[in-house]
Amino acid sequence: MEKLKIGIFELTGCAGCALLILDCESQLVDIFSAADIEAFLMAKSDNSDGPVDIALIEGTVTTEEEKEELLAIRRRAGLVIAIGNCACEGGIQAALTASGNWSKEFRQVYKDLKPTNVRPIPSQPIDTFIKVDYYLPGCPIGQEQFLTTFTRLLAGHPPELYRFPVCMECKWRENECLLNKNIACLGPLTKAGCGAVCPSHNLPCVGCWGPAEEANRSAEFKLLLEKGFDPESLQRKMAIYSGTTIVDFFNSLKKERR
């Protein structure tokens, strides 16, 4: 059987997801022998721009140039997998950019400086511009989840990722619920898959796996307000890893206040 051609691509982000793949040290030989890694800038210098069966894409689209690069990858790829919070949701750099204040914020940071070799645009998750087949969440992605997804894809199966929130894995580890201890934990709003690492060390979930499918933001928000947390800091906390998805919720809060 011919090996599948794989490309691992990085847009704007910390490169942590690509690094995590490279960090699967004991499995690297197996990964590179199971598939032809056609492009992986962090790992090798002879990168092809030919067709790939599976493209794993990390990072957000933050410039016009990246948008073009992304469209080109889509054209030559069979499956496209968004890897990491940036590619899936927009990441930290997209938090609240959909609010419409991007130009103002841009000027706040860069004043009158004019970028010379790129044309910046508001950071967006990759599915703003292209069709994404599967999403592998996390900031960065988890090693175990990456490997099980990768091997399923190589065998021609869709990934089997958890669709429930962190709380399930947290209970499997027999942790007391931090919300019940009056700690602002975002576990119920966040996709599982991390193994509930933070709550297992008595630290509240910050949401780095991105919003869970059925995240009940308004209920958790009101619950935390009742517990005495202030709305501004809660909103900031909820926005960090929610990318562009949180704007609708904030707008609904504004509407309620009126």
Binding site: T148, R152, E160, N216
Partner: peptide, 26 residues
């Protein structure tokens, strides 16, 4: 409801399960 599943996890009579197939490398 936060749909967090905790009620089922801590219930002594909840018993539903799911299965996942993991394919390993090499």
């Amino acid at each position: 409801c936060l749909a967090c599943g905790s009620c089922s996890m801590v219930c002594p009579t909840c018993n539903c399960y799911n299965v996942r197939d993991e394919i390993l490398l090499g």
